[in-house]
């Protein structure tokens, strides 16, 4: 889009056991329609097939490496299903994977220093963002995880929510500089501007939530949020570009 670059910090593609989902081609078609330049994509099958979904998301982003980056799912370090940290990040980079994700509920483990410490410390050192949407509605677990890894770069996104979650999100934005809030489903009237006034414009990220949500609704909300153009540009895409650059 002329004059404003959107980078979608939260969308999902791929099939699950419940049925087919959009692929990269369909996502790009929707992004083109709405004027969204780039996207960070997670595979829909992470919950039921973490190892395979890592392979599949790499294949999807390879179809449009200049526009899509992927996220890989972590599993506990004691069970060697994921390459160790000294290899993992090089492999990720070679495959267009720029972030990490996790799903301790579906993968039946406790997400903490004992299980993920090596990965999380290595990610913190490299400033590789870790996606926390698995903790949506699991607020005590989210708070505990972030507290245990205060140096990491995090991106939290509510997967389903439409009701404003200020009571849950604000304490995290207030206390952890590496905590970023991706805005899909955050529909609070003028809430984006309120969050910027409290915590600055660097911690918020435009995210579509596709395919649950469409790309356009939050674009208009952000465009007319009442923020300064440079803050709008940061939230639309500048912050996500910065996070990925810092990770490089």
């Amino acid at each position: 889009m002329k004059g404003l670059t959107f980078f979608d910090a939260g969308c999902v593609i791929g099939d699950t056991m419940q049925g087919p989902g959009p692929d990269a081609r369909k996502l790009l078609q929707e992004m083109d329609r709405a004027g969204v330049e780039k996207a960070l994509v997670v595979h829909a099958g992470v919950a039921t097939m973490p190892q395979l979904s890592n392979e599949m998301i790499a294949n999807e982003v390879a179809t449009a490496p200049d526009r899509l980056v992927g996220a890989w799912c972590l599993l506990p370090q004691q069970c060697p299903e994921i390459p160790p940290p000294d290899q993992l990040f090089d492999i990720m980079r070679s495959k267009g994977i720029a972030a990490l994700t996790l799903n301790p509920t579906e993968h039946r483990y406790v997400a903490c220093r004992l299980t993920l410490g090596h990965f999380m410390d290595a990610a913190a050192e490299r400033k590789v963002p870790v996606l926390l949407d698995c903790f949506d509605n699991l607020w005590p677990e989210l708070y505990a995880f972030v507290a245990e890894f205060p140096k990491n770069t995090f991106i939290f996104r509510s997967r389903w929510g439409k009701w404003g979650i200020d009571r849950q999100i604000r304490p995290l934005l207030e206390n952890y500089v590496g905590f970023h809030f991706a805005l899909s489903g955050y529909w609070v009237p003028e809430g984006i501007r309120d969050l910027v006034e409290l915590y600055g414009a660097d911690r918020l990220l435009y995210a579509s939530g596709f395919p649950v949500f469409n790309h356009g609704n939050q674009m208009l909300q952000l465009k007319h949020s009442g923020l300064e153009p440079e803050d709008i540009a940061k939230i639309a895409g500048g912050n996500m570009e910065r996070i990925l650059k810092e990770a490089e």
Partner: peptide, 17 residues
Amino acid sequence: DMPWFDEFQGIGGVLSA
């Protein structure tokens, strides 16, 4: 549902369809 949802978000959702 104002004050639950931003008017521009809702209008944006209709315009996006």
